Simulated scan of single mutants.
Amino acid sequence: MENLVNAAVRVDFYHLTRDPVEKLVPMLASKSLDVGKRILLLASDADSRATLSKALWSDDPASFLAHDVAGSERQADQPILISDRCDPANGAPYGILSDGYWRDDALAFERVFFLFSVEQIDQARTAWRDLTANPDVTPRYWKQDGGRWVEGP
């Protein structure tokens, strides 16, 4: 992945106040795949990656979201690749930062979904301030309103 920032990178901040990350990730992944975009799903620890993998398989009993982990033999073929590094071996233009930790390498994606919990609000605010100061980034904030996600101020 190049270290250059794409023009007009969109970063969607998702503030998790009600549902856990494993509930939101399948929805974001499904919507991204629906518009023909591959995804690199980032999680810093192995337990989180395993939980997210299970959520992608079992979120909708009528279907599953095909995926694999970075380093696998067929990683380049995967519509969703789960990793601990910002290295989209599957050519993903979209990244999901599921662990609440901002990575500047994510600015090489076309679009980034940055998921953070209430406990990670300080890190998210720092990332928001830094990214809003960058003219090549379009940040957007999403919050939970009942069972839906709405764009906030």
Results as ranks from 00 to 15, higher is better:
D68L: 01
W57S: 00
S44Q: 14
D45Q: 12
W57H: 05
D45E: 14
A62N: 14
Q78L: 12
K54V: 04
D68G: 11
K37V: 00
D68K: 04
D47R: 09
L40E: 02
A70T: 03
L40H: 06
D34V: 00
L42P: 00
D34G: 09
I39W: 01
F64Y: 13
L42V: 10
V35S: 14
W57D: 01
A66H: 13
K37H: 15
P61K: 10
E73L: 05
V35E: 15
S53I: 00
K54M: 05
K54D: 14
D47F: 05
I39D: 01
D59E: 08
S53P: 03
G71S: 13
L56I: 04
D77W: 10
G36W: 08
D34S: 12
L42G: 01
D45C: 05
A46K: 14
A46W: 12
R74W: 13
A50C: 05
R74Y: 15
T51Y: 09
L40S: 02
A76G: 13
L52N: 01
A62K: 15
L33Y: 10
V69L: 14
S53Y: 10
S58P: 04
V69C: 09
S53E: 13
L65F: 09
S63A: 12
L42Y: 11
D59S: 12
S63C: 06
L65V: 06
K37Q: 15
G36V: 02
S53C: 02
E73I: 04
A43E: 06
S58E: 15
R74F: 12
A50R: 15
T51F: 05
P79L: 01
